[in-house]
Design a protein around this nucleic acid. Structure first.
Length: 346
DNA sequence: AATGTTGTCAACCGCAATTTT
DNA sequence: GAAAATTGCGGTTGACAACAT
């Protein structure tokens, strides 16, 4: 794999962009689109490399950019998303319309980190600094987590470990269940509540700005969990404290009757992901088989979950564009990816 | 006023992933 | 399938401005 072709070219300008260069680039892309970035400089009459043009467009010239200072709400959202996604700036930026990964990264490094430290919160782990010092006495709190997997196994760190799995799945970014759901809105559209798969109980917590999935263990199976009414599936149940139409929006063909809306069971004992995942229950979890109607997640010869009567929108949609086998395959593979990622976290 | 320090931001660099040839 | 080209990402740098001494 060679270096970027532009690196071989000579006499290419570097550094700050002049207004004239901006105008050339803006005019070119406005009239012709960017197409292949490596050809943009030549076509636009610029002595820049394509990479530089792309960056200038994305970070400055794009018409949909939001100018000006970040609002407190945006800053809070960045903090929340960072606690889930870590330094995945582009993913964070995708949930802040009009903001670029570069400016979010700059804001984080120049401002937010400092504010968190002033509040006694470690910006890397989002835990109180005293707690972090206790956990990791030899590690400087100034270090960013380069890789989420390097973190100690804690509940918080699990979210850092597997954020994309959840955000992608629950947020339906990659699945793209419903074109009306933007990446920004979909993450925050998840219904807060609890669900059970076999004897596994999951929770989805929703703050005003963020959603975090978690897993809980019920002390007993006689909880007040409510089944999904018409869509009977003995091993899949869902309860919610919210009548959001998320599932309808997501394309799942089910609904939650108002009579079954209950509060989450307060007796659920929350456990750490790492502890939960260390149970034999999760060893070797795989998707045993799947079709448009049924998906089995199997572990050690026993089904963890049977999800039935749930149809993904591709398999039943009237829209031909969404009913391709390929799309259905993506759906299955994503479920499998999620299940396998559980198993591999051991 | 001169110098040093700090904060902000745009842009670059290297790398990895993806796409094209 | 391999190599090359392209794209995208996150870390880092350096210019500049504001502030402090």
């Amino acid at each position: 794999m060679g270096r970027h072709s532009c690196c071989y070219k000579q006499k290419l300008r570097k550094g700050l962009w002049s207004p004239e260069e901006d105008e050339k680039l803006l005019n070119h892309i406005t009239h012709h689109g960017h197409g292949c970035w490596s050809s943009v400089p030549k076509l636009a009459g610029l002595q820049r490399c394509g990479k530089s043009c792309r960056l200038r467009w994305i970070n400055y010239l794009r018409p949909d950019l939001k100018r000006g200072a970040f609002s407190p709400e945006e800053e809070n959202l960045i903090v929340e998303l960072h606690s889930v996604l870590g330094n995945r700036w582009s993913q964070i930026a995708s949930r802040l319309p009009g903001r670029t990964d570069n400016e979010i990264k700059n804001l984080w490094n120049s401002s937010i980190k400092k504010k968190l430290k002033q509040r006694g919160i470690d910006p890397n782990t989002h835990k109180p600094i005293s707690e972090v010092d206790k956990d990791k006495p030899t590690r400087s709190s100034n270090n960013d987590h380069k890789s989420p997997s390097s973190s100690a196994a804690t509940n918080q760190d699990f979210f850092l470990e597997r954020p994309s799995d959840f955000s992608d799945y629950f947020g339906f970014q990659k699945l793209n269940f419903n074109s009306n759901l933007t990446p920004e809105s979909s993450l925050c559209s998840m219904v807060p509540g609890q669900f059970s798969l076999g004897n596994m109980v999951g929770s989805v917590f929703q703050t005003p700005v963020c959603v975090k999935p978690s897993i809980s263990l019920p002390p007993d199976n006689s909880s007040s969990t409510v089944s999904r009414g018409d869509h009977t599936a003995s091993n899949w149940e869902f309860q919610t404290n919210n009548t959001s139409n998320f599932f309808e929006n997501s394309g799942f063909s089910w609904s939650i009757p108002s009579s079954s809306v209950t509060k989450p069971n307060p007796n659920f004992e929350e456990v750490k992901w790492s502890e939960y995942l260390n149970t034999p229950f999760f060893n070797g979890s795989t998707v045993q088989s799947q079709s448009s109607q049924q998906i089995y997640i199997k572990s050690e010869g026993e089904y963890l979950a049977k999800v039935s009567n749930i149809t993904d929108p591709w398999s039943q949609s009237q829209n031909e564009n969404l009913s391709t086998p390929e799309a259905s395959d993506v759906f299955s593979k994503d479920l499998q990816r999620m299940a396998v990622s559980f198993g591999q976290s051991l």
